[in-house]
Amino acid sequence: MQRAVAAGTKKFAIGVGIAAAAGAGGLVYALEKSVYASDHVVHPYHLPWSHSGKFSSFDIASVRRGYEVYKQVCAACHSMKFIHYRHFVDTIMTEEEAKAEAAEATINALDDRGQTIQRPGILTDALPNPYANKKAAAAANNGAAPPDLSLMSLARHGGDDYIFALLTGYFDAPAGVKVDEGKAYNPYFPGGVISMPQQLFDEGIEYKDGTPATQSQQAKDVSAFMHWCAEPFHDTRKKWALKIAAFIPFVAVVLIYGKRHIWTFTKSQKFAWKPVKGREPPKQH
């Protein structure tokens, strides 16, 4: 009887528990999926990036093309202060290529007499900043300073998808949305009006490797490049993850076997209560 009650309580408790968890889960799910009119922004769509898989790496050819886009288009307004030309060596370029890229840049520096001069870059230089400072940058862009792009792909919700959507998402403003001089309508940008006009156009640049430079091709490549800049260690970390993951089953076997070996004695113990002659428990009547 007592057993049956206990079993009944247990079933009831488990039932209530599962119902509560399912109810809470359902509520969270329903609210997560609902759309609010107050969301004044279009969420970017998901794209199949070559590097978005758990163990997949960058498409380096695309990253290299992305650098060309950055250099020829974005660098006019955006800095990349954490990236130095030496970072390119043996990662996305050969040393000669990286040196040549650096040499093409003009770097502001001081000469031996303390005069400001401009010299060609060397490997240890950071990618040059197009503006002297943030105020100058804002003044040249209708009051909104172009942000540094080094960490950009990690610094926005949606990451690469967002950047691609943003760069290719320029449309005529719908009725009722006021777009000031020098600004543009872009539904992916929070608020819808961005101070960066459309930058990428079909055949806007020419790729060295002959890839047709459509707008979406450039957007894809420059997004890949920006992601590479935000974490140049990306491929290394995934490679290590794979190596360590492959190691886990073996470690598991050793540890589990070892533990069970140590515990065999304890686990196979058996208790027995044996009446000893002369010390029997009292008889029941």
Binding site: K54, I244, A245, F247, I248, L255, K259, I262, W263
Partner: peptide
């Protein structure tokens, strides 16, 4: 050695942690 043998199971948690923090 009983609980040493059991506590080294934590190594597995560590390996999973390392893999996960390297992946994402």
């Amino acid at each position: 050695p009983e609980y040493w043998g059991k506590d080294v199971y934590n190594i597995l948690v560590w390996l999973v942690f390392i893999v996960m923090s390297l992946i994402s």
